[in-house]
Design a protein around this nucleic acid. Structure first.
Lengths: 117, 117
DNA sequence: TTTATAGCTCACTATTTTGTTAGTTATTGT
DNA sequence: ACAATAACTAACAAAATAGTGAGCTATAAA
């Protein structure tokens, strides 16, 4: 649980109010998140498929990230009808989809400067 | 100091190797960093000017972020000749400059979805 | 009946990041 | 002599994030 009176929290709020850039960075800047979004976009849209895609992530962490992304309206959780046990599929919202081109830019940036170029 | 045998560290390495996107996100994804880079690009290129621009950042944190950015080759530190005490100016490398358009995309993304649009 | 799969959650610890307080070097202004 | 400015750093504490291990519900297959 976050302490809502900590300097840490206050600074986060300050930055969010200062510029939406900081909001965006808080969404995408935590571990696994961009990989999860990318995996969903590539069809790995179920819990067990994401586990396969990201073999080093723990189930607890994956679950937490998915919940956060759902609250942020980046993904939506959908039950898959007539599956037993009931399957769940995740889909990107338009908000989530619109991150993909930005990920490409960041990826290209990372690649081109990999060796200090 | 980081523990180089922690799962945390190993996962970070795994993600960096998996895709340069994760390298990029680790550069820009920590607090204040994007604001610092942006401030330098706008001319707030000295320690005391950045303190003015970001009144809530502590000197220790600002110093740490600047050192990290220097090691990552995003900024370069330059002494200002004939100043007493010796002034220091920070300038963006081309690697640093090339983040600016990405920041704009992220900023636009953040703005357009601010109210759950 | 045991094992397996899907999709989680809970309580917890470990690790890392962020922020605090005080102090440094050198020089100028009062 | 004393305070102020510029540009830090060191040692530390607080907070947040990441990861661990066990367990749950429901069904089906061996």
């Amino acid at each position: 649980m976050r302490k809502k009176n900590s300097t840490n929290f206050i600074n986060e709020k300050y930055l969010h109010e200062r510029c939406a850039l900081n909001v965006a960075i808080d969404v995408i800047g935590s571990r696994w998140v961009s990989q999860i979004i990318f995996s969903i976009s590539q069809g790995a849209n179920r819990f067990h498929l994401m586990k396969e895609e990201l073999p080093n992530i723990s189930e607890q962490v994956l679950s937490r990230k998915l919940n956060t992304l759902e609250k942020q309206n980046i993904i939506i959780k959908r039950a898959i009808p007539d599956t037993i046990p009931l399957g769940v599929r995740y889909i990107l919202t338009s908000k989530g989809e619109s991150l993909l081109p930005i990920f490409e830019s960041l990826c290209a940036w990372g690649k081109s400067y990999d060796l200090g170029a």
